[in-house]
Nucleic acid binder design. Structure first.
Lengths: 130, 130
DNA sequence: TCAATCTGTACACTGCTTATGTACAGTGAG
DNA sequence: CTCACTGTACATAAGCAGTGTACAGATTGA
């Protein structure tokens, strides 16, 4: 039931550590690298592995719990939940996603990547998805 | 030679205002909504429109200038540059982009969007690109 | 039972980052 | 020259990310 960490921290990233951790765990769940029922490492265990404070990991877990990905219980630990169906994103939420894609694509294009290469990278990202 | 702002601030976003501004202007340039030679609004003008301090806008302009998007001259203003060819991103930079796409897709999937809808949104984002 | 040792939680505190206030300096029109 | 516009520099304030430390629930085994 326990599972590999699949998390790493990039200190030079503009994203705060707790967001990096949450992003990576969320992705791992969506890609079925972490399955419902899997136990996550304790906040102290993962914190040591990543070189951050355990409160930072705890905040990541709480964020994922608030999003419905994890079940945390005091004294026991954190497990991956089976996701219940959520309401579909509304127009403004979809627009927000659109903007984020748009900005990411602009950065890639600005870094010299060809539209075809960008297209390939975008499509590849969908492969692991259930 | 002057051009529409095409920028707005979302105070509830986790991204700092100066990054939001830079992201939107960069996207507009990549999508040819802003063309080389176009004058940007003065930092004070845009700051008033957006409801932020003009130093915040100035920082955005400096960031874009450092990336090679803008030519800023003291006393005159800021103009969109014709981008010179950049070196292609190396493996680690490409991997970083891959991760960002991966995390964004996971968020969309987690919000209930179907893979096909995500795919459609990703591909649509390439349409405006030169 | 109860102590040891795991687990997550709460909250004050520090330091860095973001945003602002304000003074300064370059440019060009009149 | 002067005025009204440009961007720049830097000190200060506010907000937020990360940490230290004390606490509380759960489980194991003596």
């Amino acid at each position: 039931m326990s599972a590999p960490p699949v998390v790493s921290i990039h200190p030079e990233s503009p994203d705060p550590a707790r967001k990096q951790i949450a992003d990576q765990i969320r992705s791992a769940i969506v890609e079925n690298l972490l399955m419902p029922g899997d136990e996550l490492p304790s906040v102290r265990r993962l914190a040591i592995d990543l070189g951050v404070h355990f409160n930072t990991v705890a905040e990541s877990y709480r964020l994922l719990s608030a999003e419905g990905w994890l079940d945390i219980s005091h004294g026991k630990g954190a497990r991956v939940l089976r996701r219940t169906a959520t309401s579909l994103p509304d127009d403004s939420e979809r627009e927000e996603f659109r903007q984020r894609i748009r900005h990411l694509v602009a950065e890639m294009r600005g870094r010299g990547m060809e539209p075809l290469a960008i297209r390939g990278m975008l499509l590849t990202s969908l492969e692991g998805i259930q």
